[in-house]
Nucleic acid binder design. Structure first.
Lengths: 336, 336
DNA sequence: TTTCAGTCTGTGAACGTTCACAGATGTTTC
DNA sequence: GAAACATCTGTGAACGTTCACAGACTGAAA
């Protein structure tokens, strides 16, 4: 709190440059029809005065805010353990900053949070919304269709695939890659631990698993987790009890796979000799486990970039945007 | 993009409530001096019309934006592996949302980024800045003192402790707790792997270590890391080469400790039988490692809450705020 | 020469609030 | 019963932009 000198306005710049308000505004928004001389004078005046645009004033007349909201739906607090969010956040922030739009964060963990987000969006406080890890049937999504705001998602919003454009890794094909690889390595009784089935990652990775295994993907070999480490651990324990003869397991996230490794160790199974373990995400944990995890890499940065691209296009008035699905890569380490 | 019905303004609310603009504004800002009858009428009219305040308009006249920036300084990309950011972000977002101030994210990874942040702040686009993991000598900090904006940090900004208020865990005492514990367990040759010494966590945790060990903390037993897993691994390897007889190591972050465990395993040392390993942070990785890490828990949520509190106080005009230092807890697991 | 289109510039009005002020009413104090 | 004060309300002006319009100037086409 110092320097009481008032911020220069567009008027000050105009005075210094010897032109009118209008001309300054035109160079600020690089409109056509401003002479090179005027343009140069204004640029110089801006530098000289240290002028910086007042967004509030612009926003007031344009009805645009120059900002978008990233909404993290996070029904379980623990979901936040997941390092994927960091990558999304970092990449999105960068890409948006390049276009001079700022990213405001909101958490939609409970209904109170969700109402706040809805109020925010309905109030026109942002030009767009970037939904992350939204579950099927989220009331936020229902509300969104009534609000005139651009919205995109990272990962399909189940049940709203056609109304909310999205970018995502090819979860289904990624799961196929891993499952095929386990088959090729000679594993005979391959189980899986899925994510919540109301998330695209949960549902699609299971489908990919079933695509490859066909009838061999029996109910006995499928267990459900919640993307947390503890969830993975208990799912693995249940699996071992029900089907002690399994020799491989495809776990739908690295974090759950870390939990599965603990359960296997507790049960005295060696990895990979007795049971091969495959993860998904290629997050940092895949390297901290012992042994390091064979996993499926998602191109998370590209996903974030594409999602941002979709959002900006939507804000600029685009319609009928197609989803963007990006290829995954199998990363082989020592757990298989 | 639908529903072209224009948003209701304060005028519409006034008309419906049968009062004037001014009165509506007063209830919006809960000023004193508005009759209960008027208050009720306005509340009703707001609900009826679905009015929501236009922040840009308010901002234009109040010269306040109702938002703060969280600035992530992130010299190494990998720092982002660190799950602490997620906690800070989540907690800060929540607490700020309760006070109706929104949180915009900015990354200050390179100089271009930093200039953007400076421009943003100088432009008055935010009421305050919340610095995270800022290193000593960051030009952003230098610029900040010339900008009339409230600024606080999570963790001390070395060299600016007196100008930028902060909240932090008691890094020094936390390190003492761990070191004392290792001594009590009978370990004789205790080494440490520090963080970068231009961060408070790097410097203070080393000081705490030295506080307990005194002259026994010889240079031979001190190695430096960069808070990454790989950095921890190579630091551990160097340590083993230089001082093969060590029987314990205090590592200044869990992620580095995970790396240290790999190096120890590669060298054929058993943990904890041959070498005890202590981490710091109590992050999610502390549970994924094998064995699970004994570590020092930082009250990260409280740190975030206190930092937010300081920031809001500063924005409200407080001066001379004292740093807030919060106690840590030793968490004993199987690596010691 | 006149007309026309294109280029460039300045100006008034508007965006939706808050704030300071002035005025009206009611209530206490001497 | 007047003066002083507290409570409550309405109004004009201001915040710093953009936008639509009008007008001036240019050069080319008729």
């Amino acid at each position: 709190m110092r320097s009481m000198a008032k911020r220069p306005t567009i008027h000050d710049v105009a005075a210094v440059a010897g032109v009118s308000r209008g001309t300054v505004s035109r160079v600020l928004n690089d409109d056509r029809y401003v002479s090179p001389a005027a343009h140069a004078a204004v640029k110089r005046a801006i530098a000289e005065t240290g002028y910086v645009l007042n967004r509030a004033a612009r926003s007031l007349v344009t009805q645009r805010t120059g900002s978008v909201v990233m909404v993290l739906s996070e029904p379980q607090e623990k979901l936040f353990e997941d390092p994927t969010y960091s990558v999304l956040l970092r990449t999105a922030t960068r890409r948006l900053a390049e276009r001079d739009v700022s990213l405001v964060m909101m958490i939609a963990g409970n209904d109170g949070d969700r109402d706040r987000v809805i109020r925010y969006l309905r109030g026109g406080h942002a030009d767009g919304a970037f939904l992350v890890s939204t579950h099927a049937g989220d009331r936020l999504v229902d509300a969104l269709v009534d609000i005139p705001v651009a919205a995109v998602a990272q990962g399909a919003v189940i049940g709203r695939e056609n109304v909310i454009p999205y970018a995502a890794a090819d979860d289904r094909e990624g799961a196929r890659q891993m499952t095929r690889y386990l088959v090729e390595r000679g594993r005979k009784r391959i189980a899986t631990i899925t994510g919540p089935l109301d998330t695209p990652g949960g549902a699609l990775r299971l489908e990919g698993f079933a695509d490859v295994l066909g009838r061999k993907a029996s109910r006995r070999l499928i267990e459900h987790g919640d993307y947390t480490q503890l969830g993975g651990e208990s799912a693995m324990a249940r699996l071992l009890e029900r089907a002690p003869d399994i020799d491989a397991v495809f776990v739908a996230s690295d974090l759950m796979a870390a939990g599965a490794l603990s359960a296997l160790r507790a049960a005295g199974r060696r990895v990979p000799e007795d049971v091969a373990v495959g993860g998904f995400d290629d997050s940092a944990v895949a390297l901290t486990t012992h042994p390091p995890l064979t996993t499926v890499r998602q191109p998370l940065e590209r996903v974030a970039e594409e999602t941002v691209r979709l959002l900006l296009a939507l804000i600029d008035g685009a319609e009928h945007l197609e989803p963007v699905i990006l290829p995954t890569t199998l990363i082989v380490r020592e757990s298989t």
